[in-house]
Design a binder for these strands. Structure first.
Length: 647
DNA sequence: GTTATACTAAACAACC
DNA sequence: AGGTTGTTTAGTATAA
């Protein structure tokens, strides 16, 4: 409580500067989820299919109802789609179903947005149908209103659900992007952008939307549109982005009843407007209707420094997501290729909802991959972190998140991360100011184990932190204190007097001792791992395969080619190992086959509080093998002054 | 409600 | 004297 407020204060104090706070960490976590979207492609197909069916349906409706029919643009008839997708009918899913989808967390925020928009469109269609029907068989005005209300409520519910989901993702920690973030090599464009450039950018974006509308092409110059949550509804989007859209959009309509529809549609589809509030990051001004929203948009979010800065933040968010998405696509592709031969998907439990089922299907496939490992537990058992407060859009948080988080993110995020995850995220952590989901102890240990001599001075540990995690380039006082605190507190860290001074080493035994406790935070994960072990499910195989693919040997640390990657990965294996130990020690699993993971367990790398003097000699296999050019680079880096305490 | 773990903050001492 | 390192205590949050 007190701490909470303290954090808030701090956060607001240094504003925008520091995005390293709880929310961001959580965002980071959700990035992992995003990354694991094996459902992505299926979902996309699904959405595509829905769109097409929508179009067809719309045409049919229009023909039936005698409304003016637009020019046909159905170049693609019933295309060939996967069975699961083909079976789907464009139906409006219920909030409950939506909830289900959200809880399964198989969709990215973007996908959800897309889905939501589709649902909105479908609902609107239904409204249209109702209204049309009313024309044919005069419906009570009241009835229509009621129906509309019902639809809107449903829509509202879904929006809330989506919002909640986004919030939860965000709180799980996804990414942190600050406007002034110095080290984001990913977006050189956005980085040094000045308002004028942004103005230009705005123009580009706007025009690109228009172009997209015209030729639905992927513009390559600036891929914002593809990632902007709203991208799936380009035809509407452009209308809105263009400030004149409101007037342009006033099409002459035949019936008075339909007159309001375009508006409504716009209001529902505008990415910056929904729920009666302005969704401009950090705004949330209440706008009665779409018109007032447009006014608000033009007045409050005109092209000025603030808006451009906010835009820049949003761009960074998007770009981060894009990057992640690209990686995931790649992985998905590889996975699919890999699984193509033996795709059996034994447990693709059909679900009532088409969308869900297809997503589930793809998810099932994904479960065979280590990437999805972290999600496996979360999906069925762990409820989405209930989120009740906070305004909440990624950008909003990114901008307001400052200072170190004081709230400890749940342990479950500490653990269920596969080696591949951490390995893949390494770059991410280096560049994005996202709190790594590991405990200080784990990180410290990692830093020490990574060193050639498996011993580091305090300062070297500091440097490792700042080098490996952008997050630790800020609030040095805080986390350094924590590091020192951890070093002193945990028995697993042994201080050794060296010629150079004092160095810290890891007592692996002690470290292992305390692990089980921690991992116990996620029983579902353990369960999953266990089952996979016991029954040699594809998950296990895939896990190992993936580890191999990632050049991450099963804890033969000595053979790690890439020390940083490997060691970070090993940290995660430690987590998993802990899980295994824990469960096994619980007696819940004494199966002899418990051990792929066990096998990879460090047989006990612990070198007893090394003789301070000269460990030049190979202390262990690990020590020598860890050495690599890469590492030398790191070493050099290590001594560099780190830019910290920017505040 | 209890317990264990983790994080943050801070006080303090010793050392450089 | 001031900064760093190391220890310790306290308060809080979270999950089992």
């Amino acid at each position: 409580m007190m701490q909470e407020s303290g954090t808030e204060t701090k956060s607001n104090g240094s504003a925008i500067q520091n995005g390293a706070s709880g929310g961001n960490h959580l965002l980071e976590c959700s990035l992992r989820e995003v990354r694991s979207n094996d459902a992505l492609q299926v979902a996309r197909q699904l959405l595509l299919q829905q769109q097409q069916q929508q179009q067809q349906q719309q045409q049919q409706q229009q023909q039936v109802s005698g409304l003016k029919s637009p020019k046909r643009n159905d170049k693609q008839p019933a295309l060939q789609v996967p069975v699961s997708v083909a079976m789907m009918t464009p139906q409006v899913i219920t909030p409950q179903q939506m909830q289900q989808i959200l809880q399964q967390q198989v969709l990215t925020p973007q996908q959800l947005q897309v889905l939501l928009q589709q649902q909105q469109a479908l609902m609107l269609q239904q409204v249209i149908v109702s209204l049309t029907a009313a024309q044919v068989a005069p419906m009570d005005q009241q009835q229509v209103a009621t129906q509309q209300l019902a639809f809107q409520q449903q829509l509202l519910q879904m929006q809330q659900l989506q919002q909640q989901h986004l919030l939860s993702l965000q709180r799980q920690g996804l990414l942190t992007i600050q406007p002034g973030q110095p080290t984001l090599p990913l977006q050189p464009l956005a980085q040094g952008m000045i308002p004028t450039e942004l103005q230009q950018l705005w123009k580009e974006v706007t025009s690109s939307h228009t172009a997209e509308e015209a030729a639905s092409n992927n513009h390559s110059s600036l891929d914002l549109s593809t990632t902007c949550v709203s991208s799936s509804a380009p035809s509407k989007t452009s209308l809105i982005i263009n400030p004149h859209a409101s007037t342009n959009g006033q099409l002459s309509v035949h019936t008075p009843k339909r007159e309001s529809l375009p508006h409504e549609e716009h209001s529902h589809s505008h990415p910056l407007y929904g729920h009666g509030v302005c969704k401009w990051p950090g705004c949330e001004a209440v706008c009665e209707d779409f018109q007032s929203f447009l006014k608000h948009l033009n007045s409050e979010h005109a092209l000025d420094d603030r808006s451009t800065a906010q835009c820049r933040v949003q761009m960074q968010v998007v770009q981060q997501l894009e990057l992640q998405l690209a990686k995931d696509k790649e992985r998905l592709q590889a996975m699919m290729t890999h699984l193509h031969v033996k795709s059996t998907e034994p447990k693709a439990t059909p679900q009532p909802l088409n969308l869900v089922s297809s997503v589930t299907l793809s998810k099932t496939a994904s479960e065979a991959s280590p990437q999805s490992l972290p999600h496996t537990p979360t999906t069925p058992t762990a409820p989405i972190t209930p989120v009740t407060q906070g305004p909440s859009v990624i950008t909003t948080t990114s901008m307001h998140n400052v200072g170190p988080i004081r709230r400890r993110y749940s342990d479950k995020y500490n653990v269920p991360i596969s080696s591949a995850d951490i390995a893949q995220n390494q770059e991410f952590y280096k560049n994005a100011e996202v709190r790594p989901p590991f405990t200080y102890a784990s990180l410290i240990r990692q830093a020490i184990l990574e060193s050639p001599e498996k011993q580091l001075t305090l300062n070297e540990i500091y440097n490792w932190f700042t080098r490996m995690f952008a997050y630790f380039r800020r609030n040095a006082a805080t986390w350094k204190n924590a590091v020192r605190h951890n070093l002193s507190l945990h028995k697993c860290f042994v201080r050794v007097e060296n010629v150079k001074g004092a160095v810290w080493t890891v007592d692996e035994l002690e470290f292992q001792k305390r692990r089980p406790q921690k991992i116990s935070g996620n029983p579902s994960l353990i369960k999953n791992i266990q089952t996979s072990h016991t029954y040699c499910t594809p998950l296990n195989a895939a896990l190992q395969a993936s580890m191999a693919e990632n050049s991450i040997p099963l804890y033969t640390t000595a053979s790690m080619g890439n020390p940083t990657l490997g060691n970070l990965a090993s940290a995660m294996r430690e987590e998993l190992n802990g899980a295994m130990e824990h469960t096994n020690s619980n007696g819940s699993d004494s199966s002899p086959g418990r051990s792929p993971m066990q096998a990879m367990h460090p047989v006990h790398v612990k070198e007893e509080p090394l003789d301070p003097d000269e460990n030049e000699g190979p202390l262990s296999l690990v020590t020598t093998a860890n050495h690599s050019p890469d590492f030398d680079h790191d070493r050099d880096y290590e001594d560099e002054p780190v830019n910290e305490d920017i505040e």
